[in-house]
Each structure stands twice: as C-alpha cells, then as structure tokens.
C-alpha cells in the first residue's frame, strides 16, 4: 500500500487488516484523551502498546470496541466496523473490571467465552464445558476448573481471562495489561500462548508496562502518549530516543529496566 491508494480502493486491502485506525480523536469532558491516532495492524502480529500512565492506552482499546464515544475517526476491523465483526474480536479486560467474589467457578467463566457462539436461550452443554476445560489446560490451570474465582491468585485470574478469550476463537485479540501484577510463571505462560496464537495466524494487541520485555515479546510496538509517538517494528521503533519522547525527557525507567535485567541475568 502506498499513499496513493484511494478511499474506494482500500476496502479490499482493509479486509485483510485486523485493525485499521484512522484519525482517531477521543475527548472526555474538556480533556482530549487521545488525538490524531492512526495506525494499521497486519495479521499474525504481536503488537505492544506502550506509554505512560494516562496516555490513553485503555481508551484506545475501548474505542476500538465502541465502548467510548469518539470525537472523530474511523476504525475498521477486518475492513468492517466493529459492530459487524465483533465475533472476530476477543477482549481481555483489566482484572479489576469484574467482581471476583461472584459465585461462579473458573470453568463457568471460561465457558462464557463460548456464549457468543451458543446463542440466545440455548443451554451450555457438556461439549462446551469440554472446550473450556481444554482451554484451561492450555493456560495451565486445568486443576482449578471447579474452584470459585475468588480463590484464585492474581496470575490465575489472568489466565482464566486468557482462557476465556481463547475459547472465543477470535482473530484479533485485545488485551488490557495482561501482565499487570502476575507472577513470572504466569507471564511466561501467557506469552507462550500469545506466540502460539501468532503461529495460528491470529493477531494480538497488548497493553504493556514492562519496558524491558518489550523487545522480546512484541513484533511491533505503538508508543502512545495521547498521540502516537512512534510505531513500527520493535527493532527499529523501540529506541531510547523514541522512548524518551514517549515517557518524557527524564527517562530513567529504561535505565532501571536494563539494570534490573542485568541483575536478573546475574542471579540466574
């Protein structure tokens, strides 16, 4: 694609693009939250969205699913608006977004991922539970299937959410900070699964906080601080200069991160 393509000619191309955001501006009360955001995501990618707190990362994902009103812009998912293609999108919200005291088992939560396929008024069958159980095994918490969700650790809760997204069998996954406050084993398990998903040709867009793992986890990154600071392949975009532009002049974070990485390597 080049800049010369016309609007009419792009629909076919867009259909293969998991996500295409043009000219997106979201404003809340008097504040712009994100402005002039544009980027495309091509299939089979793990994309990281990185930026400081309040940079509008979650808002960006929510805007993709029409969960927040936008001031301008167009978003298409596989060439269509979200409403017409929502079955192809799997969303993993932040853990705090649900009540973990709710009286359901881990298996019940994962089965919810299948509700979209089951349809109105039809019961959940044993076959659905088996699919859910497989997904739980895949994320490594098959033994916890019958526990109530409040008995899970933070990492296990995150795995539950991931399993729920897995059974949805979507083509584009949006994950809001899946690595926040999880143990190292869970983080490893999640990234393994994301890589398997990429192998299967799926696309995942992940909001991520831990700068020093970005280069190993993601094929490409979007550096966001209200507007897109830089985006592209991780190798070329994830530079110290761009990070400084994203996180502000005083970038001690990256130094800290590399230092922490070195420390960890020493202890291993």
């Amino acid at each position: 694609m080049t800049s010369a393509t016309t609007t009419s000619g792009t629909t076919a191309d867009n259909a293969s693009l998991p996500l295409s955001i043009q000219d997106l501006t979201v404003a809340w009360h008097r504040k712009p939250v994100i402005w002039d955001v544009e980027f495309d995501v091509s299939p089979g990618q793990l994309v990281g969205i990185v930026g400081p707190n309040g940079a509008g990362k979650s808002t960006l994902l929510k805007a993709v699913m029409d969960l927040v009103p936008r001031a301008s812009g167009r978003i298409s998912i596989f060439g269509k608006p979200w409403k017409q293609n929502r079955n192809r999108v799997g969303y993993v919200p932040q853990r705090e977004s649900v009540d973990w005291d709710f009286p359901v088992s881990v298996l019940d939560v994962v089965t919810m991922g299948l509700y979209g396929q089951i349809g109105w008024c039809r019961p959940v069958t044993r076959r659905h539970r088996e699919i859910a159980r497989e997904a739980l095994d895949r994320v490594g918490i098959g033994d916890f299937a019958d526990r109530q969700i409040s008995q899970l650790s933070g990492g296990q809760q995150q795995r539950t959410f991931l399993a729920r997204a897995l059974v949805q069998n979507a083509d584009l996954y949006l994950l809001d900070e899946p690595f926040a406050a999880v143990d190292a084993a869970t983080e490893q398990a999640i990234i393994e699964i994301l890589r398997e998903m990429r192998q299967a040709g799926k696309t995942a867009i992940v909001i991520h906080h831990d700068l020093h793992t970005v280069p190993t986890y993601f094929d490409s990154v979007v550096l966001l601080n209200m507007r897109v600071v830089a985006q592209g392949p991780t190798a070329s975009v994830f530079t110290r200069e761009n990070l400084e532009r994203t996180y502000g002049g005083r970038l001690t974070l990256l130094d800290e991160a590399t230092e922490a990485m070195r420390r960890r390597e020493r202890t291993l």
Binding site: M65, L67, R86, N87, V89, Y91, P93, S97, V98, D99, F102, V104, D108, V109, M112, Y115, G116, I118, W120, C121, R122, P123, V124
Partner: peptide
C-alpha cells in the same frame, strides 16, 4: 446463561452479542 453473563461482566455480554 444470559442473566449470568450480563450480571458478571456486562461489557463481555455486550461484546458476545
């Protein structure tokens, strides 16, 4: 099923149709 999902996670319920 519908009551369960819309009580537990309304956002998810809406995205699941």
């Amino acid at each position: 099923k519908e009551l369960l999902i819309s009580a537990f996670d309304p956002g998810m319920a809406t995205t699941a149709g």
